[in-house]
């Protein structure tokens, strides 16, 4: 397959996944803002949302202060923000357009249709009809495009590069969600188990569709270290980093070429460390530092994949 084609497929999937994750993060914040909480807490929570995406600076250049409406507008509609839902869906569609001949017509039409519908949404509509409905829609379209991908695409290289994009992006996003919320909910030295905690941690789990999963797996109270374990190390949890890396490694092996051995080794090494890692060790050494290193290694894999297979990032 053409390197440029693989590149478009990979980014199409990454942007669609990113749109979904942005919607998930915003949705959980939106729901939490309906809980009784102080103005400071509220601002902290929305600020954290921006920090997750690394967009605090960009936000403050454009908006005076953090308010739910401003953050929503910035993260959903802003055309200057490359990670706004609108821009993600548009980028997914543009990438799909560039390789529409490689996609099944169902997948192309799904991606194109999502973008065409996105253009109809306005900030006013979100305010009127409820933002949650919109976030549900974004998640639903992402589910749909993933389902159509798996249900219609030939299991060849094209599908592999799409899957690589999906899981690499998801690994990155899950790591960011966990890191920021962990810091926010459990500042260093504090003991777990406060009154509002339950809602906060359950909201975090819900943002990655893991609330029911947690109940099923642990059948016990929600504790921060178990949440971290679930999102980092549980291979059977579809949005955990261990799961994402397992998929990245498998798809990478399937497309291996003459120059990709080192990339495979690094992916395999990371996958094994997650698979055999223990949450006690991670918490003892500091979760924040662990996640930072993890994010660095995920980004390293991304640029190595670009160099080995796609259009190198210049």
């Amino acid at each position: 397959m053409l390197s440029r084609t693989a590149d478009h497929l990979y980014w199409m999937a990454r942007y669609m996944e990113r749109a979904e994750n942005v919607a998930r993060i915003l949705d959980v914040n939106h729901r939490m803002s309906m809980m009784p909480q102080s103005a400071v807490q509220q601002e902290q929570a929305w600020g954290a949302t921006l920090r997750i995406m690394g967009l605090e600076g960009a936000f403050h250049q454009r908006y005076a202060e953090i308010s739910p409406d401003a953050v929503l507008e910035f993260m959903v509609f802003d055309q200057e923000n490359p990670s706004s839902v609108r821009n993600c869906l548009r980028a997914a569609r543009e990438n799909a357009h560039a390789v529409r001949g490689t996609l099944t017509s169902e997948l192309w039409e799904t991606t194109n249709g999502t973008w065409l519908r996105m253009r109809d949404f306005t900030p006013e509509m979100l305010a009127d009809a409820g933002a949650s409905e919109f976030f549900e829609w974004v998640k639903y379209r992402s589910h749909l495009s993933r389902g159509v991908t798996i249900g219609t695409m030939l299991q060849d290289e094209a599908l592999r590069f799409i899957r690589l994009g999906t899981f690499l992006e998801r690994a990155d996003n899950t790591a960011r969600i966990l890191d920021v919320k962990y810091q926010l909910l459990l500042p260093a030295g504090e003991v777990e188990g406060g009154a509002a905690d339950y809602y906060q941690w359950s909201a975090l789990l819900r943002s990655v569709s893991a609330f029911e999963v947690y109940r099923k797996v642990y059948r016990d109270l929600i504790t921060p270290s178990r949440v971290a374990e679930l999102l980092l190390l549980r291979v059977d949890m579809p949005r955990s980093i261990a799961r994402c890396l397992k998929e990245v490694y498998a798809n990478l092996c399937a497309v291996a070429n003459d120059q990709s051995a080192e990339t495979e080794r690094r992916a395999g090494e990371l996958e094994a460390q997650l698979r055999f890692g223990r949450i006690e060790d991670i918490v003892r050494d500091g979760l924040h530092n662990y996640v930072l290193r993890l994010l660095g290694r995920v980004q390293d894999l991304g640029s190595r994949i670009a160099d080995d297979f796609l259009v190198p990032v210049s």
Binding site: M1, L2, R4, T5, V99, R100, G101, T102
Partner: peptide, 14 residues
């Protein structure tokens, strides 16, 4: 261009 490449099952190149 994309249509014909897809229908013939060949690569669409730039």
């Amino acid at each position: 261009h994309a249509f014909l490449a897809q229908q013939m099952g060949v690569e669409l190149v730039e």
